[in-house]
Measured scan of single mutants.
Amino acid sequence: TTYKLIANGKTLKGETTTEAVDAETAERVFKEYAKKNGVDGEWTYDDATKTFTVTE
């Protein structure tokens, strides 16, 4: 399944996707990606669109 991340960070803005077996796995991947890019904010997830959003 393809999951999408929308990053609304102070230093990183944009979108990326990952293939994962479930939302929990995708969330781990995206949180690691955000951490590597210095983004720390509020996370939301929309199951209907398989989209995570992080906003600083």
Rank of each mutant, 00 (worst) to 15 (best):
E15R: 07
E24Y: 10
K50H: 11
V54M: 06
A7K: 04
N8Q: 11
V21S: 11
Y3P: 02
Y45D: 00
F52Q: 00
T53K: 06
N37K: 10
N37T: 05
K10Q: 11
E24D: 10
N8L: 14
D47W: 08
A48Y: 10
K35R: 13
N37P: 01
V54D: 01
E32N: 08
T53H: 08
D46Q: 04
L12D: 05
K36W: 07
T18W: 08
F52R: 00
T2R: 12
I6S: 04
K13T: 11
E42P: 04
K35E: 09
T18S: 04
N37R: 10
T2Y: 10
T55V: 09
D22E: 04
E24I: 12
E24F: 10
E24R: 11
K4Q: 05
T17C: 11
N8I: 15
A20R: 02
K36I: 12
K4I: 13
A26K: 00
E27R: 10
T55A: 06
E56M: 08
F30R: 00
E56L: 08
T16V: 15
T53N: 04
T53F: 10
A34K: 01
T16D: 04
W43L: 03
F30P: 00
T16P: 04
A26W: 01
G38W: 04
D47Y: 08
E27G: 08
A7F: 15
A20C: 09
G38E: 06
D22T: 05
K31S: 04
K4A: 04
E19W: 15
L12N: 06
E15P: 06
K31I: 06
A48T: 12
E42M: 13
K13A: 10
G38I: 04
E15D: 06
K13G: 06
Y3S: 02
E15V: 15
D46C: 09
L5R: 00
G38H: 08
K36G: 06
V54F: 12
K10P: 13
G38A: 06
T18H: 07
K4P: 02
D22Q: 03
A34Q: 02
T53E: 05
L5C: 08
T25L: 05
A7R: 04
A23W: 15
V29N: 06
F30W: 02
N8Y: 15
G9W: 06
A26P: 00
K13C: 15
V54P: 01
T51K: 03
G41L: 03
T44H: 12
A7D: 04
Y33V: 06
V29C: 09
Y45A: 00
G14H: 14
V39Y: 09
I6N: 05
G9K: 04
T16E: 05
